[in-house]
Amino acid sequence: MNVIISSIDFILNWSRANSLWPLTFATSCCGIEMMQTVASNNDIARFGSEVFRGSPRQADLLICAGTITHKMAPALLRLYEQMPEPKYVIAMGACTCGGGMFAENSYSVIRGIDKIIPVDVYLPMCPPKPEALLDAIKELQDKIKQETLLERKVFTDNHISGLKEDCGMLIENDFSITNRSILNNKGGINMDLEELKRLLGNSELIDGKVVIKSDLAKTIDFIKNNYGFNILKEITAVDTTNGIELSYRLYSVEDEEEVIISIVAQNEAESISKIFDSAVADEKEIFDMFGINFI
């Protein structure tokens, strides 16, 4: 009887170890080294692992390559749960092993993916070299070759149930996004030079920045239309003692000139998304980081 069981174990483990199909899952830096491992110089195909499956249903191995943040964590958990048994996880890179560089100071990085899913092989370094990933895969193969069916069953039974209790909050997070429309298209505003004088009347020039008090949208629209500042490089928000200082960095392609317009906002600021479409992105970011409501 033992002979039969051990021979079944042998064949199963042999096939499992030699055909680890990874999931196409790369979040950041380590993903590039994972791609490099697939490429010609290192050739993961030698170990039969070049079959990268896009669907978790057909994958055996989750190479978690790159930082997992709080927003990504539910997706990672779901991917892991979608994978069929037996499934294995390699935590690639320092971020996934324990937070890595971001363990100390970041507010959004999960300190080690083993808080979310069970990990079979840890592969630190930032990022690991392709050779290291190949080594991790061989390590995992050795591990698979030694385990028995019963061990695997105990492992999955124990781990999954505890996991769901720990991460209950994460599972309920249903990928929903906040629908906050800051776009209300009304078209540009026409003004003349006197208008500009009035607009910039009580403005000051501090450190090369035009600091204005009000009428932000009108000013920027005017400058864009009349002086050809057609690229909004970025909007920078700085928390000062007076309030949040917003700096709009405008650039003119023709004249190769830059102008910075800045305004201090308390809780609300005028949206310039109808003037520059790219402002939507910046304004959303500032809303998230500083709580300024753009209207």
Binding site: N18, S19, W21, D43, G48, E50, P84, P86
Partner: peptide, 29 residues
């Protein structure tokens, strides 16, 4: 310019056999 599967069996000849076995014994979701 790669070698392709070459670790399972001679010249990797058993690679797909391993794949087939593994797929047969995997969980059917």
């Amino acid at each position: 310019q790669r070698k392709g599967p070459n670790r399972v069996g001679f010249w990797g000849i058993l690679q797909t056999v391993a794949d087939a076995f593994k797929l047969l014994c995997k969980e059917n979701i």
